Amino acid sequence: MTTIPTNRHTDIEWRNESTQKPPKQALFIDRANADMLLQYARNNTAVVWQGDFHNAKQILAALKKRIRKPAAQAPQADIQTAFHRHRLQQAQQSRLINMLAVEIGAGFTLNLPRAPDVSAALADVYGLPNETPFLLPLNQLLGFIGAHEWHKKGVNIPALGGRIHVPFGVFSPLRGEYLELLMQAPLPRHYRTAFDIGTGSGVLAALLARRGVSTVIGTDTNPRAINCAEANLTRLGLSQQVRIEHTDLFPAGCADLIVCNPPWLPAKPTSAIEAALYDPDHAMLKSFLNGVAAHLNPGGEAWLVISDLAEHLHLRHADFLQQCFQTASLTVIDVLHTKPVHQKAAAPKDPLSFARNQETTHLYRLKPKK
């Protein structure tokens, strides 16, 4: 737990889902403007808003407008540098934005005029209610509220005949193209067992069960993901077919089919949720490929679902995956591919649009070399 000094002459806990260092101090105030908040933020001082909640949201919007400036199109000659510059700029902007905070009272209460009931949204993130107050960046609180609404609504997955419900901190299957690849890949009728490595929401494990695999084990190390996956499988009536284990990569034993959708970009995550997107030096990908053959039954396959966005960002060479397959003594028996349809792929103002509009998502069917 991290505590910081305040102008109330008492220390108070500071919570932040990102890896950012806490501010050096916090000031409780009920009147301010965006310029004042920006000055405090640049001095590593957080402002804890004590006034009207809707006014705080307006000031936050003004603060973001001052901080976020349109990024120039990345030069094609130095794409990798452009990507890392973009990530650094995002981190710097996020730190300044997160300096506007609110105090969360005992029992996840927010005692500000016109404030909504935030207890359910905070319980989604933290579990049991708090007994002592803590400070939370307003931008993160709004993110928690939005995530809670998405959690309740869920994401419709036609192939499942139902919805996947995802709380804050778990990667959501909004990008449906990789799910379609899993449904299109030929599945031998005699495959009865499967592992889903890094199951997250449990959506891939559920799809394998729907396709007729009688026993599926999903693994993950994120407690939020494990709880999320188990809840989704129960809701879909698949908890008898699918079991979730708190395990790093492979469970004990072997399976006919092993599926993995690892993080696609080799960069350092700045928050827990980013661990589903960024994996330094492709550590999980390499560990999966190097270990998968030992966990396959004779005649079994490994399915790797991965995008080539990292190649278009010059974060890995075009032959990187083939080298990984060779090192792991794996043979590619088929490749399925599709183009993304998510909003960023067609957003010209996105600073990485030059790479996103070239992206292709692949499903590699792999077998151990004989």
Rank of each mutant, 00 (worst) to 15 (best):
I244A: 05
K64V: 12
P188A: 13
Y178E: 15
A194R: 05
L304D: 03
D308I: 01
T109P: 12
I226A: 07
P223T: 12
F168P: 14
L60K: 03
L366P: 11
Q92I: 00
D350E: 11
W264R: 08
Y40H: 09
V335P: 01
L187C: 04
H165S: 07
T270V: 07
S271C: 12
H317P: 06
P298G: 00
L207C: 08
D35N: 04
G176D: 02
A147D: 15
G198I: 12
R87N: 04
H314W: 01
T234N: 13
P70M: 04
Q90M: 02
P251W: 13
D117N: 15
L135A: 09
H312T: 06
C260D: 04
P167A: 14
Q322N: 15
P266W: 01
T215A: 14
E274F: 00
N222E: 01
A267T: 06
N33G: 12
G127F: 08
E17A: 15
K65W: 06
P186K: 14
F325E: 08
V335K: 02
G105Y: 10
Y191I: 07
E311D: 01
D281G: 00
V170P: 01
L88C: 01
N98P: 08
Q241S: 11
Q343T: 02
A34I: 13
L128I: 03
R163W: 09
K152F: 00
R316W: 02
P186T: 07
I29S: 03
L160I: 03
L265E: 13
T234A: 14
K69A: 09
K370N: 10
A120P: 09
I157P: 12
N44P: 01
T270H: 06
A276Y: 01
L313I: 06
Q93M: 03
D117S: 13
Q343S: 05
A91C: 07
H337E: 05
E274H: 04
Q25F: 00
H165P: 07
N44L: 08
A82T: 14
G162L: 13
A255V: 04
G51Y: 02
A231S: 14
E180D: 15
L128F: 01
N261L: 09
Q322R: 15
S94K: 03
A41C: 14
G299I: 08
H317A: 15
L179Y: 12
A229I: 01
R243Y: 05
G200S: 10
H282K: 04
A294P: 08
R211I: 00
G51A: 15
L321G: 14
N16A: 13
P298D: 01
K349S: 07
F28D: 04
A159H: 07
G161Q: 02
I104K: 09
Q326V: 09
K24N: 08
L207I: 02
R15G: 07
M183R: 02
A72W: 10
P348S: 11
R189P: 07
K344D: 13
V341R: 13
D30F: 00
S18W: 03
A123L: 04
F28C: 02
A74I: 14
L128H: 05
I273L: 15
A302F: 10
P280I: 04
D78C: 00
T360V: 15
A293G: 13
A120E: 15
H84K: 07
E301C: 06
F195Y: 13
L181S: 11
H9L: 10
L315A: 11
L37I: 10
T221K: 12
A328M: 10
